Simulated assay, not measured.
Amino acid sequence: MATIKGALLEELVRAYFARQGFFVLRSVPYRFDEEDVTDLDVWFYSRQAASARIRAIVDVKNKRSPKAMERILWVKGIQVALNCDRAIIATTDNNPKVAHFAQSQKIQVLSKGFLERLEKKLSKDNRLTLEEFESTVQQYVAHKQDGDWLRIIGEAKSAVACMGGFPAFNRAMFAFRFFGERAEVRLQHRDIALRCALQAAALACISLDAGLERVVFEDGERRYSSIIDGINYGDDGDNRVLASIQSALAVLTEGLPNGRTVAAQAQDYFDQKIAGIRADIIAEHFSREHNAQHLFSVAKELDEAAHEHILSNTGLSVEARTVLGVFADFVGVKRTVLPMASVKIAIPAKNTAVRAIVPTDDKTDGTLSLENLDADLPISLSAEDEKNDLHVQKPLL
């Protein structure tokens, strides 16, 4: 276990839960009221059913003195603060009392022995690690002066874990629009901007899926209005923001000599600003359950796409491209900026050549050699079944 240090152990834990079918984030800032509190080593989310979601945190520590007992209390407190369903610690501490204490607190433990077996038998994902992703962003030397790209991604990640569904969605959409616009005008750094845009879109999918959890059994009209209100006011169904606005207008009406006129003007201006948000674009598409049910799977797909070593070889499903298109229309980003064209090919069982099926307006085809396609895990990890097909995108121009 001494060969795995800090970030690499976090990446191993991330890969493990990702193989189990969760949407997983590393190094998530925990913020409260715009103040930084701490960092979450690993945070993951899953849609178990139409009305069931799971949120969990993992505290990962690989030190000479991991202080596992102390970390159990720490992660328990974070679990309560974030209202997570599960809390886990991954520790190199071999003390049997650690497991007993963790059980008493209903905390799960990934032990040193388990992590060692995981290291040996879990194949490495063909994706950028968090450190590699951030290093890629930092290749744009002016990224900090140009809005601070890493900060924007960090704030979107934090919102997913720390805020309600719709406030987090609005934060992710801000990031998506920012990077979509940068992809259009920063041509030398378009690849980097597209990666960030895909990551922001993945976070938006998770946020929107979480926001829709409470209205899953409502009729279409109620779901539509919930999405409208959630996006316009950042509410999670409690109408607190709208109530605060109405209270402020009531104060204007009663507290000023010409209060009714001033309040009416304020209401008109506010209505104009709300109309400009175009929340109906999101509501029209995702108020339908057969569209909303794809949010979780699309989030995982976009997250993988953002972390591919070669972005131009990323293939997106029809569902993922549809979601990107809806998001682009919502924030006013050109669809042509995004990686949305794809070519579908069949996946063989072993290392063989396969022939691409290209669109009808393309005169050529070719063969692609795919290696190491049988990525089954040697140990039981409850991994998702591998898909039977793959989409390969045309290289970006």
Rank of each mutant, 00 (worst) to 15 (best):
A99K: 13
A99I: 06
Q145N: 01
K76P: 03
R151Q: 10
C84I: 00
T91P: 09
F133E: 00
P96T: 11
V58G: 12
Q108M: 07
A90C: 11
L150T: 01
S104V: 02
D125F: 14
N94P: 13
S104D: 05
L73E: 04
Q145S: 10
E119R: 14
K106P: 02
R55P: 00
L115K: 07
Q105L: 15
D85H: 14
A99R: 13
T91M: 00
N94I: 06
N83R: 07
P96K: 10
P96W: 08
A87W: 04
G77A: 08
S135E: 14
Q105I: 05
G147C: 00
R151K: 12
R151W: 08
I107D: 01
L82A: 03
L122R: 11
Y140R: 14
S65E: 05
K67C: 09
L128Q: 14
Q145E: 10
A142H: 07
V137I: 14
F114E: 15
N95R: 13
R64C: 02
D125N: 07
Q139P: 03
A90K: 04
H143R: 12
L110G: 11
S111D: 13
K67P: 02
V98S: 10
A102H: 07
Y140W: 13
A102M: 02
L110Y: 15
T92F: 09
T129H: 10
K144N: 06
A90F: 02
R151N: 06
Q108H: 10
L150K: 00
T129V: 08
K121G: 15
E70S: 05
G77V: 07
G147V: 04
E116N: 13
W74Y: 09
L118A: 06
D93A: 06
K144R: 12
S104I: 03
G113R: 11
N95Y: 03
M69A: 05
Q105C: 12
A99E: 15
K124Y: 12
I78V: 12
G147H: 01
A56Y: 08
D146H: 14
D146Q: 15
W149K: 06
V80G: 02
N126K: 01
Q138E: 15
I88D: 08
K61F: 09
D93C: 08
E119Q: 15
L128I: 11
K106Q: 13
R117K: 13
N62I: 08
L122K: 04
V80S: 00
A81I: 12
M69R: 10
L115N: 08
D148W: 04
E116Q: 15
K112Y: 10
A142C: 09
P66G: 08
A68E: 07
F114Y: 15
K106I: 01
I89F: 01
R151Y: 04
N95L: 06
Q108A: 14
E131L: 10
Q139H: 05
K124V: 15
Q105T: 00
V141G: 04
A90I: 03
T136Q: 12
K67L: 14
Y140L: 10
I88V: 15
A56I: 03
T91L: 03
I72L: 13
E134K: 14
Q145H: 03
L128E: 10
L73K: 07
R117S: 14
Q103M: 10
Y140D: 13
Q108K: 12
K61W: 06
R127M: 14
Q139L: 07
Y140C: 12
L73I: 09
N83W: 02
T91Y: 01
I57P: 00
L115M: 15
V137Q: 02
L150V: 00
K106H: 09
L128Y: 12
D85W: 07
Q145I: 04
